[in-house]
Design a protein around this nucleic acid. Structure first.
Length: 571
RNA sequence: CGGGGCGUAGCGCAGCCUGGUUAGCGCGCCUGCCUUGGGAGCAGGAGGUCGGAGGUUCGAAUCCUCUCGCCCCGACCA
């Protein structure tokens, strides 16, 4: 490809609309252009990078025994009504009516369609296991699209669905995908962690998220400094503190006028937040529930929902009025003693002795409160967010909180869809059984953005070689010089013959412009044919990632470049 | 959905508060000269219904009302 003929509209300045680095660089380097909020056109270089990722995904999915299909993007409401999601999916599902008045939607995911496909076409356990995938544009009507390709309304996703006859085989399918995902992200040249995610009703460790490590990530992940433990916030647990050995003291009520916030109460009582237990009121399916938590901790709502046996959508914080209605006490003075409603205590609270709580009386707190003696919670369990002061549940090592970008998620679905949609097969005993399913997603377009978040410098992108739009960029710095131009053209043609992907910058621009653009678009190897070629026949090969320059001769250049590219691709 | 900000040339912005000639600047683009190893220089040029609608006024980019779009924080969400 010749640069002069490609649409690569590079920009000198940062576009005002972009906030994070990948968004800025994707726009500046001419990889994407916005059509409207959250939707982008992929220009030649952007599309080339996406195709690289797609190809890696295809190869590894096929290697793992999955088969590629392509499902419709427009889906009938009737299928979603069958699975029960038409009413629960929310506004992210873009719904519309076709000319015949049929309710339809744009597919944000394809569990319904695939389940329908398989129930119509697979009858026997002999046809299992089955794993089908597609690479397709998804549409989710995001509340707030942002960060360019990171969170768009339209995005390219690989989604796979496995169907198995038994639980054991379903777990094997899951593990195959887990391995395939590790291979995929490694091949993409990403620094990532697979973390345990909350799997809701399924239980077990059958949901993993694949997180690219980057400061701009929207998710928080918890990892152990010492061992392999890694989990997302919803799932992460830690070693609870050991039970305090202090002697219980006498419960004492203290006037704390106007002191409502943890910080203020603690200052007034001259104690640390870790010596106070706060009482939060949640509304769970319209009923109030009190949650007891150490003063410096935060509720993890997913854990709370799990322990209560409800969906996290069924639970929310109560507002001030609801708190008063439920407890007869204004917020700020709530405590567990004498509370009539359901009380959930965090595990940590059970280890505390002589802590402060609200007195359930306006302007009063009590100190030296003790669980078991002064009150008894309805249940006790881990309902808080892990902090970076906590210790690893596996090895006791220090936990660290870091930011990540979710690029993949694998999930054992069980029979959620096969049961509701009546998708069954006959087992060896002629018994009808629902398929046991799994689903496995990868954000293809998001990977490109995540790779840039992880690999850039002040001059531009630095693509990992396997997913760079092309591997080599040749700069012809002597367009009007026949010798230079002939040499550049010959190297270009020879590299193409060798199967190396290459762009020749044959634009009538000054060298500085070409160097700047080359850095900006982040092609791994830059080959310069310019005045040094006239002087002593030398040609430079520069590695974008580290700036290393290899000087070679015209005769050796193609072999040298080929070696570097192949080495780069195989490392 | 709540809060905030911004819409003026392809991009980045000034002008608006305090209404008044042909609406500016930088980058980019076109032509010519010149230059050619890190976004050169000179000269000439094209390009804008100032997001849209309504209103106030002799007169609106500027003031008022409505509206559309985009961005940010939060809520929500794989």
């Amino acid at each position: 490809m010749r640069f002069s003929q490609l649409l690569i509209p590079t920009l000198k300045e940062d576009p005002a609309e972009a906030e994070i680095i990948s968004h800025k660089l994707l726009l500046r380097a001419g990889f994407i252009r916005k059509l409207t909020s959250g939707t982008y056109t992929y220009l030649p270089l952007g599309l080339a990078a996406i195709k690289k990722v797609e190809q890696i995904v295809r190869e590894e999915m096929n290697r793992a025994g999955a088969q590629e299909i392509l499902m419709p993007m427009v889906q009938p409401a009737s299928l979603w009504e069958e699975s029960g999601r038409w009413d629960v999916y929310g506004k992210e599902l873009l719904r519309f009516t076709d000319r015949n008045g049929r309710n339809s939607c744009l597919g944000p995911t394809h569990e319904e369609v695939i389940t329908d496909l398989v129930r119509m076409n697979v009858q026997s356990y002999k046809e299992l296991p089955l794993n089908l995938y597609q690479i397709q544009t998804k549409y989710r009507d995001e509340a707030r699209p942002r960060f360019g390709l990171m969170r768009g309304r339209e995005f390219i996703m690989k989604d796979a669905y496995s169907f198995d006859a038994t639980d054991k085989e379903a777990e094997q399918s899951y593990h195959k995908m887990n391995q395939a995902y590790h291979r995929i992200f490694e091949r993409c040249g990403l620094r990532f962690r697979a973390v345990e995610a909350d799997s809701g009703a399924i239980g077990g460790s059958f949901s993993h998220e694949f997180m690219v490590l980057a400061d701009t990530g929207e998710d928080t992940i918890v990892t152990c400094k010492n061992c392999q433990y890694a989990a997302n916030m919803e799932k992460a647990t830690c070693v609870p503190a050991s039970k305090s050995k202090d002697e219980p003291q006498e419960l004492t009520k203290i006037e704390t006028p106007g002191k409502r916030k943890v910080k203020v109460v603690c200052e007034f009582l001259d104690i640390e937040p870790r010596q106070l237990v706060k009482t939060l009121i949640y509304i769970v399916n319209d009923k109030p529930v009190a949650v007891l938590l150490r003063g410096d901790h935060e509720v993890e709502e997913v854990k709370l929902a799990n322990i209560l046996g409800v969906s996290d959508e069924d639970l929310r914080m109560a507002d001030d009025k609801e708190v008063y209605d439920a407890t007869g006490t204004p917020t700020g003075y709530l405590g567990p003693i004498g509370l009539e409603i359901q009380v959930v205590a965090d595990t940590e609270v059970a280890t505390m002795v002589n802590f402060a709580v609200g007195a359930n009386d306006k302007n009063y707190h009590v100190v030296n409160c003790n669980m078991g003696r002064d009150f008894t919670p309805t249940m006790t369990g881990d309902v808080r967010k892990v902090t970076d002061n906590d210790r690893c549940i596996l090895c006791g090592g220090d936990l660290v909180l870091t930011k990540g970008i979710e690029v993949g998620h694998i999930f054992k679905l069980g029979t959620k869809y096969s049961a509701s949609m009546n998708a069954t097969f006959l087992d060896a005993k002629s018994q009808e059984q629902p398929f046991i399913m799994g689903c496995y997603g990868i954000g293809v377009s998001r990977i490109v953005a995540a790779a840039i978040e992880q690999n850039f410098d002040k001059d531009g992108m630095i693509f990992p070689i396997p997913i760079a739009p092309v591997q080599v960029l040749i700069l012809n710095l002597g367009l009007k010089d026949t010798e230079i131009t002939e040499a550049a053209n010959t190297i270009y043609a020879d590299l193409l013959k060798k199967g190396i992907e290459v762009i020749l910058d044959d634009r009538d621009e000054r060298p500085g412009v070409k160097f700047k653009d080359a850095d900006l678009i982040g092609i791994p190897f830059r080959v310069t044919v310019g005045k040094n070629f006239n002087k002593d026949g030398s040609i430079e090969i520069r590695t974008r990632a580290n700036g290393d320059v290899t000087t070679t001769t015209f005769a050796d250049s193609v072999a040298e470049i080929t070696t570097m590219v192949e080495k780069g691709l195989n490392q």
